[in-house]
Design a protein around this nucleic acid. Structure first.
Lengths: 167, 167
DNA sequence: TCCATAAATGTTATGTTATAACATTTTGTA
DNA sequence: TACAAAATGTTATAACATAACATTTATGGA
């Protein structure tokens, strides 16, 4: 299983996550002949400000603040589309929001563990789930092409706090 | 595995699906002391007109047509909320739409196989996937509470047609 | 039966998310 | 430099969803 759950829900040096993400993004873009323009980079950086999925309009606000000049929806949605197409971010459909991919470039099908208390989400690429999904699809005669697997619940930190507060 | 994939993607006597759904709905409502009012029943029936997830605004249009009198969003959204709360329908987050549950009442966690060609969706309750999800969540220290598992791809019928047309 | 209450529905308004369409600017390349 | 393609700017609107309050309808108790 590949996952960033060890960092996503816990205190950590997040600057390292951001740096790694930006470096990987540049590598992916170079490899694919795509241009990581300043506005795309700014959107990616904002998405990577933490491990919580963020909505397009929140990005618009933050970007407006950052630029000191009004940013309009198409600007952000274009950046989002670009980043999605390269697999640098993912869309969390159940939240209408977006999160950085911690392991872009490597083929993987995704599962997200979204904490309903703190809002943080970890991504997991688990062979067990992918094979279970394939098997289920196959039994239905269905050919799977893409998936959206989003689990809502409590992360270890928030669960701990919930337990403590009820003692 | 419990699934309606045998009917959802194939020609079948759909009136039986509709009838079964309405009967089950009445049973669930009786058991839960909930009222299946005419407008709620109308929305459920429209959702069950086929096996394709339908959006709230499409329901508003159809209901307006049916009633001969303008139906407004809250009317439909209230019916949707009611039906969701009883598990009579499900929300497909990746499509912003709703689909009837073929086996309401019985506890199950769901997976949807949505055909990108014909739009039909089947629901599966597969133990293998649920246990794989639990195992993955557990490894991340995460407590799963609810899930949204949506697979996009080609149903058997549409795959067949795709194969034929490329010969 | 009538009343009090709760449940459901009607109505107005607005919030939130996303994209279409066309103009302009920037960038890479011949 | 000049051309074409890519990216961005701009205006407008489409699509999805809910808040807040008024009114009506159903239901059980007096």
């Amino acid at each position: 299983m590949i996952t960033n759950s060890k960092v996503a829900y816990h205190d950590h040096d997040h600057a390292r996550c951001e740096n790694a993400a930006m470096i990987q993004a540049r590598n992916v873009c170079r490899a694919r002949g795509a241009r990581l323009t300043p506005s795309r980079e700014a959107v990616l950086q904002l998405i990577w400000q933490n491990h919580k999925p963020i909505g397009a309009y929140a990005l618009i606000e933050k970007l407006t603040e950052l630029n000191g000049k009004r940013v309009l929806p198409p600007t952000v949605y274009r950046a989002i589309d670009f980043l999605l197409s390269l697999g640098l971010i993912h869309r969390i459909a159940s939240l209408n929001s977006f999160i950085g991919c911690p392991f872009p470039g490597s083929a993987h099908s995704d599962l997200f563990l979204v904490c309903r208390a703190c809002g943080s989400a970890a991504e997991c690429s688990a062979e067990g789930i992918n094979s279970a999904i394939s098997a289920t699809a196959a039994r239905a005669g269905f050919t799977a092409e893409s998936q959206s697997v989003e689990i809502l619940g409590l992360c270890p930190q928030c669960k701990l706090q919930a337990t403590e507060s009820t003692q």
